[in-house]
Nucleic acid binder design. Structure first.
Lengths: 342, 342
DNA sequence: CTGAAAGCGCTTACAG
DNA sequence: CTGAAAGCGCTTACAG
């Protein structure tokens, strides 16, 4: 492969000029630039990232830190971030932040070795909760960082207002006349998720309060954010016909889909007998005709990348918690409450 | 952050010795090695990937090239490859090979710019079909490469035997006494997938042939490998009670799940009235109790990474098409054919 | 077993 | 607008 020397020789200029011309620096004459570009094209020359990084101190590479690989949400965020970074000329290197209790050594190695190699200019951290020591370690690297999904001390963060999102989902069904509304939430013990399950439950309760309904503990079930967990929770909520709700708000779309399938297996029609609303904007939502509050993870990834790129190109860092957009997507899983006619 | 100079000064040795000691070279005395390691630890020193790469010619970084980000299969492969690379001390940089017709410029830029930056030592290419020009471009980079999912000229490739996999799925239901067996396959026009849909259909037909059944064109439907596509195809296959099959073989688990849901909506019981078998090992399979031929994509990613790492550490390249393992996972969606008793 | 020194391929003040 | 030269932070023959 050609080096900058070869291009310089072919174009009849110095390597300094080649570097400037190809970097688009304005201090190169048009004629020279054209000569250099033609030589580079002929030789198929592209500057070595390694050499360029060492000389300039910039790698043009962003580190993406994720606690989970392989799930729909994270894969979507990755996709959005990757697209935006690529369009900005950046590469993306992926880091997996493993679970502290299950893979403590792998997690430690991430901080002590991989992130310390200085392979990247900056980080995007998705749904990552860090210990103080880990946060300090990251901070010591001196790299800009954008967090997605929850506040991180001293870091610009894009976060979803979980309270508002769940409140919107619930208000959608209260506006349809529902009053017996169940909630399938998540475990609120482990706080490795910025208290998202608690915030969503509180949003649900706030919406109930707004129409004068007291939250009923027997209408609350806990799932694990999977279809299976939502299915199990919904079977419990729907099993007793006398206690049966007319609507279910689920803290995730997968749990909502589980609830729809549970209703079907009990012979209940959705939405005639039961309305179901989820939160996420999951890819399966359209097939199941699920009404949901869409948080558009692909856009979240894109936004995180664009925010970081803006910081990197000198725009002043915000150092703030920025709200992520969301919107209600009404499909056929929700309808006017049985017996309520306006 | 500390540099190798700082460590050398603190340990009272030359930078050459620091480099050797931390690289685990055997030509360093134990006493010196300990001094160096202690100094490095104190300063939190980790060699800069950039400087190390430029000096050694090795980046300790692998490029992963994928045509799709965000789907279950690719996310799973990514997860498996990432884990194996990390355990080997390598980083993973992700490249998205966009569709030629939809994003021709992005695709060209991948070859002309991103891959040419020499940021990685080698590539893993997943389900990637390349034009001759693209293959030549990649080859000119002079980097080792492992392909996953189909033969790539001159490249070591790990491939699934699609014919055998579909044949196994079909034999499972013929062995249960089924003879009216439908097949939901994929479009066979665009060959951007190494003819996988055709190979799976042929495997299905071979299994039928083995029990003396002539393939019936009216029992063949085309889906798009989604739940929705499988649902649509199955409704067509199951709609006419007189033509109805007793079993469906789907070329993917998502289509199989669509078929199960279609059967339910028609009042058919799975597996009593209809057996359904898929191919993939999809994460949703266990919830839907789907019998499937599992290709374990996480392991595929791991295998691809391990194969590449072996090449990189000097073991002779195989330059061959290596078969990927798969296994039949029997769950509750398949049963003995109605009316057939052994 | 260890060190001095060259060199990896760029970028960027500095000088003109 | 352009070039000569230093330097980015390592690794690795070479010599001892």
């Amino acid at each position: 492969m050609a080096t900058i020397q070869g291009v310089a020789a072919l174009a009849g200029v110095s390597t300094a000029t080649v570097s400037r011309a190809l970097a688009g620096k304005s201090t190169v004459s048009d004629a020279t630039r054209r000569k250099v570009e033609e030589a580079a094209r002929q030789l198929g020359y592209v500057a070595s990232a390694t050499a360029s990084s060492l000389a300039s101190g910039r790698t043009r590479n962003i580190g993406m830190v994720m606690p989970i690989l392989g799930s729909w949400y994270y894969a979507s965020v990755l996709k959005g971030a990757h697209r935006a970074l690529t369009d900005g000329g950046y590469d993306l290197t992926l880091y997996h932040l493993e679970d502290t209790t299950r893979h403590p050594r792998r997690r430690r190695r991430l901080f002590d070795e991989f992130l310390a190699r200085k392979r990247v200019d900056a980080f995007i951290a998705v749904s990552v909760e860090l210990t103080d020591a880990e946060l300090r370690r990251l901070h010591d690297l001196g790299k800009p960082m954008v967090g997605l999904g929850g506040p991180l001390a001293g870091v610009t963060t894009l976060g979803l207002d979980d309270h508002a999102v769940a409140r919107l989902a619930t208000e959608h069904v209260t506006s349809l006349g529902h009053r017996r509304i169940a909630f399938i939430g998540g475990e609120e013990q482990d706080h490795l998720d910025f208290h998202m399950p608690a915030h969503r439950r509180e949003g649900y309760e706030a919406a109930l309060g707004a129409v004068g309904v007291e939250p009923d503990p027997s209408l609350r079930a806990v799932g694990d954010f999977t279809i299976e967990g939502g299915h199990r929770a919904a079977l419990r909520l729907l099993g007793d016909p006398r206690l049966r709700p007319t609507a279910i708000v689920a803290a995730s779309d997968e749990m909502a889909i589980g609830a729809i399938l549970a209703a079907r297996s009990l012979g209940l029609r959705v939405p005639e007998d039961l309305s179901v609303v989820g939160i996420d904007g999951h890819e399966l939502g359209s097939f199941f005709e699920l009404t949901t509050v869409d948080q558009n993870p692909v856009d979240q990834g894109r936004l995180a990348a664009e925010t970081l790129l803006a910081e990197l190109t000198g725009r002043p860092a915000e150092r703030a918690a920025l709200p992520l957009p969301y919107d209600l997507t009404v499909r056929r899983s929700t309808a006017v409450a049985p017996g309520s006619r306006d």
